[in-house]
């Protein structure tokens, strides 16, 4: 018999890093910035989190360090794209390349070391409930944080003034500037937030998913998270649904391999990437859906006159 709760658990575990990275990028893109450095920020978070936890023995200090590393990388991106108005696509790529290299360099001393795992929550009685106990009450803290972030971002964008300002800046930075909003400050803040959640996503990989350091352990998840943001048409609820769907696809491949399905393992491993492409095609066939939410100034630099 298939243990459905175990499968759900692994799906959530596989989805959470995607969700964490993507929810930050969603805010970044809503403010009109395209940060392709997700993969680099994530992998830096992973190595920084692992290293800190390894040295101090505290997974939580690792999580903090990972967030710090993600923010630091994102601020490099912000400095180039916002202050120096460089091309956002190329700058994002450079952050990714830099992150992959730097993480390898920092992590070279940590390869093969035992890691520290961030423990799951355990609430007496509730966590032991059949079927839903672990699923609802026994996850690791980052899962809850990711869900809180999705709800929080959704509320922030829709209902708060801050959200209104972020949307305004993303839609038309010239108008926002004319009304006296500091486009660049708003974007710096959003980019830093994106760096923080990417760092968290990295920490999830190296402190929860597989508590050890492996080179390039993000394996393209940063890019898939970027695709998820497009797929979500910039709506947090849809983003969460998409992330769990992708986590499902990822786990499907692993399970099939584990159960000895006579398909080459490489084919199963390629499923998430194929699914990403298919998802992008599906969403693009419905253009009107994405038009209203698409930040109109996405990817364009802004230089105010003085």
């Amino acid at each position: 018999m298939i243990d459905y709760e175990a499968i759900m658990l692994t799906i959530i575990t596989a989805s959470t890093p995607l969700l964490l990275a993507a929810i930050g990028e969603l805010v970044v893109e809503r403010s009109g910035v395209l940060n392709l450095g997700l993969e680099g920020m994530m992998v830096m978070g992973a190595v920084a989190g692992f290293a800190m936890a390894q040295v101090t023995g505290s997974a939580w200090l690792g999580v903090l360090m990972a967030m710090f590393a993600g923010v630091a990388m994102s601020l490099l991106f912000a400095f180039l794209t916002q202050t120096l108005v460089t091309n956002q696509v190329a700058t994002g790529l450079s952050i990714t390349l830099l992150g992959l290299g730097l993480s390898g360099l920092i992590g070279s001393g940590f390869v093969g070391m035992p890691g520290v795992k961030l423990e799951s929550v355990s609430i007496p009685v509730l966590s032991d409930l059949p079927y839903v106990g672990t699923l609802v009450f026994g996850q690791d803290p980052l899962v809850y944080i990711s869900i809180i972030l999705v709800i929080g971002v959704s509320y922030m964008l829709k209902r708060t003034r801050m959200g209104l300002i972020i949307r305004a800046v993303g839609q038309n930075h010239n108008s926002a500037h004319a009304l006296g909003y500091s486009v660049i400050k708003v974007r710096y803040a959003c980019i830093a937030f994106g760096g923080m959640t990417s760092g968290l996503a990295g920490a999830y990989l190296s402190l929860v998913y597989t508590p050890q350091w492996i080179e390039n352990m993000t394996a393209g998840r940063g890019w898939i998270a970027l695709a998820l943001v497009v797929f979500s048409t910039w709506l947090p609820g849809r983003l969460a649904a998409g992330a769990y769907l992708f986590g499902g696809v990822w786990i499907l491949g692993l399970y099939a391999q584990g159960m000895g399905v006579p398909i080459p393992s490489q084919l199963l491993s390629s499923l998430p990437y194929v699914a990403t492409i298919i998802a992008l095609i599906l969403i693009s066939t419905n253009r009107r859906l994405s038009v209203i939410n698409t930040p109109a100034s996405l990817g364009q630099g802004f230089v105010p006159d003085r």
Partner: peptide, 17 residues
């Protein structure tokens, strides 16, 4: 680490931009 190369390359792109 052989990752030195990648770090230098990343920096180079970063600084050229």
């Amino acid at each position: 680490s052989d990752k030195t190369t990648q770090v230098f390359q990343g920096m180079l792109l970063f600084f050229i931009l």
